[in-house]
Design a protein around this nucleic acid. Structure first.
Lengths: 351, 351
DNA sequence: ATGAAAGCGCTAACAT
DNA sequence: ATGTTAGCGCTTTCAT
């Protein structure tokens, strides 16, 4: 009798198999498995025994298909989980998803609008209940259709473009304005600005904040002090090497994100330079950096958590106008407060 | 005619709807949507137009159900994505999944064997094609059944217990032995050992490595120098405060992981102490720490990537005996090489 | 090349 | 309290 279930080792037992083995109807098995309706105790235990014997595992997708219920799944599109900024967001989203009994699919947002749209469509085919997107592309108009078709979306870190959707973003303008203002108020007027590509609205908002800080004080802003396309710490360090070696170098630096900030800090440290540094984004262990710096900090975890909460309101069917939450920033002193020159004597024979 | 599709705004259009609108059979739509078989060009474009008009999106789960094909999904169970160690693994797994055209569900491995089993079962109900597990619990025997039922699993960072499954782990013993040996060879004999709970086999392997380093040199090991249950940097720092204040304090420290290592480093730094520190696990920006330290480093990304590769071999149906990959460790000097005492003068009026 | 019928594993809506 | 029938959206026969 049991042999039948072994005719094809790859086939999983179904409710029908369990029903046969327990000598009850399919529906009775369904009731027992879902444990919702009252079933005769004897029957129930027979069913449970049969399910156990056969190694029955409910097919969630089949239940969803028939009942029209939700997949209890949300998707998160990000660029790179190894990056602290995205990892914190993913952790926050995972926490909120778990609290709601949802599973989380983490996917890649791609390099451009087409890749992003493809990723979104894949997740829509899988009928996720909602999507959180940390966009890398510029244009999101293509996503409007997917939203209209019933997949709510919330944007993180960047406002949606060409699309009316919820978003949780940072106050990039105010943060950069305050950070630059700090340096200006210390008497610096030639501030080197390191930013990633201006194609990212976050970056141009931050640069606007820098300009505003100058304007606030009636000071002229020298656009030639802006260094563009600094995408990695390595690039930042290399650019800094050149800048620091040049005549009439800036007397202070503002970095548009933590990647350029870390690179700049490394270069300043390596050259034993003490020019003050302000960096948008805090980062892990920044308080232990071997020289002072100031960071434009914010609640990275909240960025993800608030976005996820917003998404779940949509998933629950709440109807409200697209909402944009703007998270405030703060200036925080980081690094050790002693300025020390790096020593060069090796401490041991290890690599 | 179009009105019908709007009778229920929440209902997504199906292949049948598209077929009706295009005036073709259901099967023709299927052929067009899947783009596999040859279809008359006119018909095909009519179908595509109808699908476009209606906003048709294939139901992936329905296709999987009927065809018996794979869900093209793997699951990753970890504790906390915000932790650099897990985030790097997740990033690696995400990369491999994407290269294989799979989606990745990141789930929580829970605090104990029951939670872990529940999470696994949930993912099995969703018919993931395989599972990567960074276990937190001690006993994995409960998972054997799920493997037998057809869900391959690969364990990361910890060997499976009571279960024959693939794994990718670190050479904890050798790493700790070498790290401790370094300190012993510098003449230290009283080494303070900070470890997380010994319930984690990784930790007891590392402690065994410490003991072995003493044994290698014919030196006695004083078990009273082992500080247990140091789970967070904060705890580590607090324990260190007490240890450093006591008489006859250790003259060097070995930390079982990066959390305790960072905490110990903070405490040593705060007290201006120069006792050498060796820490299992490298961490981001460790090279810029304001005092020297040595880390037991390894390829964190490879841990995840190799595990995922192994899993995909199983998913492809390759049959081989359970395999355990042991990743080597190396000693690496980190931190700035200048030892400096922290200054206390605040640098500005900011928080 | 196209279509009709059956059915994947499950639940809803009815019986009884 | 239990069983029967139909059908979720799709693909797989098997006709034509």
């Amino acid at each position: 009798m049991v042999a039948e279930s072994q005719q094809n080792p790859a086939r999983r037992p179904t409710m029908t198999d369990v029903a046969e083995r327990a000598g009850v109807s399919l529906k009775t098995v369904s009731r027992v498995v879902n444990g919702v309706q009252t079933v005769d105790a004897d029957m129930a235990s027979r069913v449970q025994q049969a399910a156990e014997d056969l190694g029955y595992r409910p097919n969630f997708a089949a239940a969803v298909l028939r009942s029209g219920s939700s997949t209890a799944t949300i998707g998160l599109l990000t660029k790179d989980l190894r990056n602290e900024f995205y990892a914190t967001i993913a952790g926050a989203v995972a926490d909120v998803a778990r609290a709601n009994g949802f599973q989380l699919i983490t996917s890649y947002s791609g390099e451009n609008a087409e890749e992003e749209l493809e990723a979104v469509q894949d997740l829509c085919r899988r009928r996720v209940d909602g999507l959180l997107i940390v966009p890398t592309s510029g244009d999101h108009a293509g996503l409007q259709k997917e939203m209209d078709l019933g997949t709510p979306m919330v944007f993180l870190d960047r406002r949606p473009e060409g699309l009316a959707a919820d978003a949780v973003v940072l106050d990039n303008f105010a943060g950069a304005r305050a950070g630059t203002g700090l340096l200006l108020d210390e008497g610096h007027t030639r501030i080197g600005i390191l930013i990633d590509t201006l194609k990212m609205p976050t970056m141009s908002e931050r640069l606007d904040g820098v300009r505003q800080a100058y304007a606030d004080r009636g000071l002229p802003f020298d656009e030639s002090l802006v260094v563009h396309n600094v995408a990695t710490p390595e690039k930042a360090a290399r650019r800094m090497d050149a800048i620091l070696a040049a005549d009439h170098a800036p007397t202070a630096f503002f970095c548009g994100n933590n990647r350029s900030g870390v690179g700049a800090l490394r270069a300043l440290w390596a050259h034993g330079r003490t020019e003050p540094l302000v960096c948008f984004d805090d980062f892990h262990l920044s308080d232990l950096m071997p020289r002072p710096l100031t960071v434009v900090s914010y609640d990275n975890y909240a960025l993800g958590a608030l976005g996820a909460e917003l998404l779940f309101r949509r998933i629950r069917g709440e109807d409200f106008d697209p909402e944009t939450v703007v998270l405030p920033t703060a200036l925080s002193r980081r690094g050790t407060t002693t300025n020390i020159a790096p020593a060069n004597e090796p401490t041991g024979g290890i690599q």
